[in-house]
Design a binder for these strands. Structure first.
Length: 429
RNA sequence: GGAGAGGUGUCAGAGUGGUCUAUCGUGCAGUCCUGGAAAGACUGUCUGCGCUAAAACGCAGCGAGGGUUCGAAUCCCUCCCUCUCCGCCA
């Protein structure tokens, strides 16, 4: 969340900065309720103070005096209780309004109301020259690696079964990415896939986007929509050592999203699933380093695409398209020849102290002063399913086979080409 | 799922109605002592909010929320969580 003090003292600037986000974020009510809350709080505190004084007096008083004081104390208590009830109500309202406010976009984020205003930063790689390129959902089934129908049968639409080399490719990609990032200094973690509500609030999914996630209602637990949630919340309510920063983690988890509001989008293929695998990169760093760490993290995600020989571009999201918690975000988009367009495969965000405030993650500064909020960052490194789809499309051969990127060959037991008639048992051991 | 125990400051662990933000120890920081260290001595050391230029100060916090009382870490109620044993189980 945004620093409440900043909102109070610079209401106009905050309001203006949020307007760039494209819609509906007024801080007016928050500012008013907050002022009211503080007024009631001082009244409540004054009553408490009087009650405390009376307690002292009663202890030392004579019997007859004591009864008189008790009467006053009772009156004070009644008023205290009233003030407290009001205070609690206002405090709850402030929190509600406060949690609903998105982060302030960084000054370097371009203006714009939707994705058409995003700005390309750079591109990498040569788009492959393919005559009549096929889409991945055309390439996959003949290779025996996707089974869309049975995915629907055992779950519902937007669930897919990976078969044979599809399953092995998916697994190879996970391992490749985790190994790759581990070598670059990210400490691997494998967190729980179900998290409690506090986690979802900490990383900003809730309370705003309640309907977007799968929830085990009987247990008040949520299926993680991204590893960002459990991994960032590892350090919730903790004070980290300044010397340990930056803390860098990579994590594989399956991710679950209801894709509410995505009806009709990417209904074919393996691009938009309710369940998908992803390797996520998460960093906790000093505020003064977050800009630099953001760039590095994005580079780490790009390095995976480069290692897999996949053409991509980096774009910076405009203020209207940026995620709720992010103050700045780069998207990496990989080239899909079959679709003839770039598609998002990684989103690398700098959250500033927005999540750290929600999740209460602090660090002790070098000078041993008061603990301060860390900055958090994360990015996909990468979404596995989309990577698999991109590999299929970019490496397709005229005969329907698919070349395996060099970097992945060791993870597939030396297999260099995916063919329909591959003997899986022989290819992978 | 059944039975029991417990949730207090970095940790450990007292406190069962006021003098308690809370004994003692430990950890941490500083000072002294020392050739240097260890040991020892002394001092300091929680968080949030409010008001402040800052300090001072005020309020709150002993898992959470209610209740009793002038007064609750302490008594009562509800809930949450952790641990141990049994059962079940990858």
């Amino acid at each position: 969340m945004i620093d409440l003090r900043l909102i109070r003292e610079n209401a106009d600037q905050v309001e203006k900065a949020l307007e760039r986000r494209n819609g509906g974020f007024s801080i007016k009510e928050l500012v008013e309720v907050d002022a009211e809350q503080r007024k009631v709080q001082s009244e409540w505190e004054a009553l408490n103070q009087r009650a405390n004084q009376l307690q002292g007096l009663i202890k030392g008083a004579q019997a007859d005096e004591r009864e008189k004081l008790k009467v006053e104390a009772k009156e004070v208590n009644v008023r205290t209780k009233e003030a407290n009830a009001l205070r609690n109500e206002l405090e709850g309202r402030v929190k509600e309004l406060h949690l609903a406010l998105p982060n302030i976009p960084d000054a370097s984020v371009p203006d714009g109301i939707d994705e058409t205003f995003n700005v390309e930063i750079h591109t990498w790689g040569e788009k492959p020259q393919i005559a009549n390129p096929k889409e991945h959902w055309e390439l996959g089934p003949p290779l025996g690696i996707f089974d869309f129908e049975r995915g629907v049968k055992i779950a519902e639409s937007r669930f897919t079964v990976l078969m044979e080399m599809g399953a092995k490719m998916e697994r190879a990609l996970m391992n490749f990415m985790l190994d790759f990032h581990s070598r670059r200094g990210y400490k691997e973690v494998f967190p729980p896939i179900l998290v409690n509500r506090q986690c979802m609030i900490g990383t900003g999914q809730l309370p705003k986007f309640e309907g977007d996630f799968y929830k085990c209602a009987d247990d008040e637990l949520y299926l993680v929509p991204t590893a960002e949630v459990p991994v960032t919340n590892l350090y919730r309510d903790e004070v980290l050592e300044h010397a340990d920063l930056p803390i860098m983690h990579c994590a594989y988890t399956p991710n679950f999203r209801r894709e509410a509001g995505s009806a009709g989008k990417d209904t074919r293929g393996y691009i938009r699933q309710h369940q998908f695998n992803k390797v996520e990169l998460v960093k906790f760093c000093l505020p003064e380093n977050s800009e630099e760490e953001h760039e590095k993290l994005t580079r780490d995600a790009e390095a995976i695409l480069e290692a897999l020989e996949l053409p991509y571009r980096r774009i910076i999201l405009c203020a209207g398209d940026i995620g709720f918690c992010a103050r700045k975000c780069f998207d990496l988009e990989v080239w899909f020849p079959g679709q003839n367009k770039y598609r998002e495969i990684s989103s690398c965000s700098n959250f500033g102290d927005f999540q750290a405030r929600r999740a209460n993650i602090k660090y002790r500064p070098a000078d041993e002063g008061k603990a301060r909020f860390v900055h958090t960052l994360n990015g996909s490194g990468l979404a596995i399913g989309r990577t698999l789809a991109a590999i299929l499309e970019n490496n397709q051969q005229p005969d329907g086979s698919v070349r395996v990127p060099q970097a992945l060959v060791p993870y597939l037991g030396g297999l260099t080409v995916l063919r329909r008639d591959d003997n899986v048992a022989e290819a992978v051991h």
